[in-house]
Design a protein around this nucleic acid. Structure first.
Lengths: 147, 147
DNA sequence: ATCGATGCAAAAGTTTTGCATATAC
DNA sequence: GTATATGCAAAACTTTTGCATCGAT
């Protein structure tokens, strides 16, 4: 999906919820779109202030917008260890994460066998699954080499 | 494992780290052993205060002890949504969680197919896996019936 | 007697809220 | 013009830290 298409989609969602399209919301969504890693609210706030020294934005707006974006399934969050919640775009195909405890790096992967098995488990427990979180925690190749 | 065996094990770990066996640590470990759900530090603190109105304990001690217990692999923590970190005993065989977004209930399960698949993924990325987190998020049978 | 543990209170974070003002529609 | 959004500052939480005192070894 390119940015224009993505932005239109975002504007539609705002309209559907009778919310307004503001400069701040645009900057937040643009920052998340252009920085495809996982970011804390603080990260996003700082990135915006750096790139746009002229514009005013408060951390509260970032929190408020991220909550709305998560509810609308535009972003998703994962939390690991002491790092707190990190947000990322949900544009991409569904995937899970490998998290390095040494350097904090997050690697994405997708595995169809596991996905199917998860469906079976949910069914077994009569659980209506809406999403799942899977993180393999360990030490990445690079950090192993350093040790 | 019964409590005496468990407690001996805990005492050994304390000794190995030249740490002391205190009343507070005993109460914390006992509370976690006797309440086999997932608890926040605050939960554990309140449970101890309720059952032992006579004894003095500070929330800082609970935090400090839980950190040590997690490092020592006696407890593990999961975090989901806004509820913050929740701790549970690691006594049991390894398992993963189904989390209900309606009532907060946590159901445990174990699936060997997924476990093996995870090993393969870690190998593929040259990742030295130390643990993993898997939570299937959704609505439990009971809450579905209420709707 | 020694050294680690504790409670308390203060500090450090992080996230949320209230409110007057600004802005999109 | 109206209703929502914003920034700011204060508040509410959660977690950590410093320190004098206490207690286990």
């Amino acid at each position: 999906m390119d940015y224009d298409e993505f932005l239109d989609n975002f504007k539609d969602i705002l309209k559907d919820n009778s919310l307004k399209y503001t400069k701040q919301r645009e900057l937040i969504i643009e920052t998340i779109f252009n920085n495809r890693e996982h970011h804390t609210p603080e990260d996003i706030y700082m990135l915006i202030k750096e790139s746009n020294p002229n514009i005013n934005i408060g951390i509260a707006t970032v929190y408020r917008t991220l909550s709305f974006l998560e509810e609308s399934k535009i972003v998703s969050s994962i939390s690991f260890g002491a790092d707190g919640k990190k947000y990322e775009l949900m544009l991409k195909e569904h995937h899970d994460h490998l998290v390095c405890t040494e350097c904090g790096k997050i690697i994405e992967f997708h595995n169809e066998t596991i996905e199917k098995e998860q469906e079976l488990i949910a069914k077994e427990f009569n659980f209506k699954m809406t999403s799942h979180i899977m993180q393999l925690v360990g030490i990445c190749q690079e950090c192993q080499e350093k040790q």
